[in-house]
Design a protein around this nucleic acid. Structure first.
Length: 224
DNA sequence: TTCACGATTAGCT
DNA sequence: GCTAATCGTGAAG
């Protein structure tokens, strides 16, 4: 591996510069953005743009729904019972991707937060598609309504082409990153609600949504 | 090695 | 509204 290829200044730039390869897209958020309290990151990610580049092309959308998971105090977090091979990424450096399979079918993507050794992450649950609509339709099926392309954590991964292979990928690029959304209004109201689809710690209001946004999932009826 | 189950979705009733 | 689909993970043996 790595044979026959000379290390160049261009390579250095590729690894040290924020990913911003498209003129229309802002650079990746810095790692410090993620190395903070998980719930702050979960809130602040709303309205940012998630981008994934694959050989098929570029796809992106505005994050409209997130959930926080903090293993130290959160029985619903995968890493609550300690370090395992699966959850090792959650214990690592902030800004990396924790991708896992749910119900044997779906891939779900998280951004690792806080300091190394503190297992915590933010689950990305829904996007408002903005770039690569055709590619998403290709991946999701041409009959899929635009509103449903990324409405749900498994759907979001399908539409953007995020798979288990992306577990451990860096959200600082070059192929996966989160950036500011140009001209995104600063005064959009945010709502906090209980998390969805979990059986423990169901009363933690650690799910955050852009209030009233039609691309938010959460149609599921809360447990009585 | 075996087994129960889940941070879900799609398709049917 | 209800449930089948489907498999990696982790705990138990």
């Amino acid at each position: 591996m790595g044979q026959g290829r000379t290390h160049t200044r261009r390579d250095e730039l590729a690894t040290t510069q924020p990913a911003s390869n498209d003129a229309s897209l802002a650079p990746a958020l810095p790692r410090e953005f993620y190395a903070r309290a998980t719930l702050d990151v979960a809130r602040d990610l709303l309205g940012k743009t998630l981008v994934h580049r694959t050989p098929q092309g570029l796809a992106a959308g505005i994050i409209v729904e997130t959930e926080g998971y903090v293993a130290a105090v959160d029985p619903a977090a995968h890493a609550y019972r300690g370090l395992t091979p699966r959850t090792s990424v959650m214990f690592g450096l902030a800004g990396y991707a924790y991708v896992y399979r749910s119900y044997g079918l779906h891939s779900l993507v998280n951004v690792v937060t806080q300091q190394e050794g503190e297992a915590a992450a933010v689950l990305l649950r829904a996007l408002q598609p903005t770039v690569g609509l055709e590619l998403m339709q290709e991946r999701r099926g041409s009959t899929m309504a635009e509103r449903d392309l990324c409405r749900g954590p498994g759907r979001l991964c399908l539409a953007l082409g995020i798979t288990l292979d992306d577990n451990g990928a860096d959200f600082l690029g070059p192929d996966l990153w989160i950036a500011e959304t140009p001209d995104f209004p600063a005064d959009v109201p945010i709502a906090a609600t209980p998390r969805i689809g979990i059986t423990r710690a169901t009363d933690f209001p650690w799910r955050f949504v852009l209030a009233g946004n039609p691309y938010v999932s959460g149609n599921r009826v809360p447990l009585p």
